[in-house]
Amino acid sequence: MGEVYVITSGKGGVGKTTTTANIGTSLAMQGYRVVLVDADIGLRNLDVVLGLENRIVYDLVDVAHGRCRLRQALIRDRRFENLYLLPAAQTKDKTAVNPEQMKELCAELKKESDYVIMDCPAGIEQGFRNATAGAEKAIVVTTPEVAAVRDADRIIGLLEASEIRDPVLVLNRIRTKMVKTGDMLDVEDVIEHLAIDLLGIVPDDESIIISTNRGEPAVLNSDSKAGQAYRNISRRIAGEEVPLMNLEDGGGFMNRVRRLLGLRTG
């Protein structure tokens, strides 16, 4: 019996879908059975980030309305046979699914998987309620900006009011140089404001754009710093203790030496 996670943020554009794709792929790389669910009805995009957009036949709404069996709608990943995607519908009707149906769906999905990971739409309306309805745990994604942190705070309040206890935080798109010059909030600042446990930090990394262009999550690229960060995060989800990544190790001389020697930094 697996666990159901929801990945949420309140604000749009902070990296929920990228986080979902990377954590899911990385957990599958570790050998876990993973189902990713795109709960953003009407704005399907997790399929594109995963590079599975050409293989969709049925979607979440078809399953909820009994137009197909759950198995028929699940798309198996090209790279990992233990990774599946349940795509969102492209219907304009956001009320096409209700929280009760999502609960049933999650209960069904977790029977035969280790992790069910739900990509939640931005906002706090029906889509949020749907995505959180069947979830047991929550990962809140934010970036070091006032607006994103503020929305994360609202979301944490809403999660705690629902049945999801102790959400954890992923702080995305950290620019080490700007933190150093005092022009970006750092990890401690954000954690202090939100009073929430940290699951992981992810550096701002151009390789994310490249991997999204290609439809290959960054965790597949061993040179990607963001990929490394997401691999660490997924190992923590699986219960391993992994120290926080040192974001300053970027392109430094010592790091290049370490790479030449085949050593990887946390």
Partner: peptide, 21 residues
């Protein structure tokens, strides 16, 4: 550091969260 934009962000965040809560 008193005038760095990070400190401005910190202060604005502190106030906005307080008002929200």
């Amino acid at each position: 550091s008193l005038k760095s934009s990070k400190n401005v962000a910190q202060e604005r965040l502190r106030l906005v969260l307080m008002h929200d809560r």
